[in-house]
Design a protein around this nucleic acid. Structure first.
Lengths: 225, 225
DNA sequence: AAACTTTATATTGTATTCATTATTCACGTC
DNA sequence: GACGTGAATAATGAATACAATATAAAGTTT
């Protein structure tokens, strides 16, 4: 059934550089390419079995995204995020998430709200079960759903780019029980504002929620690993 | 005097792809590479007297920035900005400018404020003399100064990237006398809020100011050229 | 042993070449 | 004239080659 429909669709193409952008991004996110480290161009070409051209093109893109630093004649390294970087980027992300909340309230449908409520309730159950990875996944899905409900693809794109820069820091930050409880409370407020379609309140709560996360990350960085 | 100091400084390097990014960006801004048009890769290499490699690298970067569209096996074209794109990007820019105003009020110095006031006053004189190009230049300089006073280089970078996408649309939009008068009034309010270091008010006024510009652009697009 | 110089090797940036894909042109058929 | 097919040409993506720069290793001097 599905196969017949697929056969009559355009054949998707993907350039090597595009594929490499995604792979390198993921490698940075999971720490396989560590912050501050030189990017081993030759080794990566061998690993991926591609020539240097598409890999270098991919690195240019990642540099434009801020994930990678290019130094002329010295190659590329993974951008090392300082606390200063985080202090700069989080307010921007907070502001953009606030905007996405405001825009979402103008156009979100009842089924979309219901879906977010479902995810929220499951997330709370994961919290109560102390299942952090699944809680984290659902948490991200809720933020993603709100962003998509905003219906602004440019906002999604800008947000994704910035979020990609700090994804590693967010991923490894430890959350204390008190902060976790607070985060859940904030999410209840997010859902309430969303159900009321109160854009201003949702925008404010989302901004505060993200800035709370910055405090978590900041504290995590201050502790010895 | 200055020459001796310069001689003992590191020798700056610039890769071709980096230079080409800037040149192509400018060519798009001034309309030399028109929206929707194919980018003539071969001709540009001849014009700039470079090989295809750095040019293709530059195009990848511009594509990541949203200025250029890459279609596999069909090459690159200048992204055609639809009204939808503008409707999406302007609110983001407005939000980011609002944030820059808030951040600036937290840390701007008296000399910085004085400099912005000077520019403002000169801009008003240019308005009264009906000198639009110079008014536009000063207008941009004021926004730039506020953004820099925010002291957030990530914000500058994100803002510049977005502003670069819509720079052509802004540049060609016609401003009616009524809108011009309103823009000047808004700038007076911007300066007042800045001098009061009232971050919330400045943020709000800057957001409105940018959204007013969207209305100008929108109207300009609705009129036959 | 430390510092300096020279040589060898590796890496980086760019140019050129190769293979594939797309577009255009020419020709034949209906 | 419209349509289809095949050949020729151009453009695109990637691989390879070349030149320049940086780094490491070896040799020499103090």
């Amino acid at each position: 059934m599905n196969t017949v429909a697929t056969l009559r669709q355009p054949i998707p193409r993907r350039t090597l550089h595009d594929e490499l952008v995604d792979r390198l991004r993921e490698m940075i996110h999971v720490g396989e390419l560590a912050a501050g480290e030189k990017i081993p161009e030759k080794a990566l070409c061998e690993q991926f079995q591609v020539s240097r051209t598409p890999l270098r093109e991919a690195l240019k893109v990642l540099a434009a995204d801020g994930l990678v630093r290019l130094t002329p004649n010295r190659g590329a390294s993974v951008a090392a995020l300082t606390l200063q970087d985080l202090e700069e980027v989080f307010p921007i992300i907070a502001t953009l998430e606030g905007l996405s909340g405001e825009l979402a309230c103008r156009r979100i449908s009842d089924p979309e709200i219901a879906e977010i409520r479902e995810m929220h309730e499951e997330m709370v159950r994961r919290y109560e079960a102390r299942d952090l990875p699944e809680y984290f996944r659902l948490n991200q899905a809720i933020h993603r759903a709100i962003l998509e409900s905003a219906g602004n693809t440019s906002l999604q794109s800008v947000y994704d780019n910035l979020a990609g820069r700090i994804s590693r820091a967010r991923y490894v930050a430890n959350m204390s029980p008190a902060r976790w409880e607070r985060a859940v409370a904030e999410h209840c407020e997010i859902l309430a504002a969303l159900e009321d379609r109160d854009g201003e309140r949702l925008g404010r709560v989302l901004r505060e929620h993200v800035m709370t996360k910055l405090a978590t990350v900041r504290q995590s960085l201050a502790e010895p690993a």
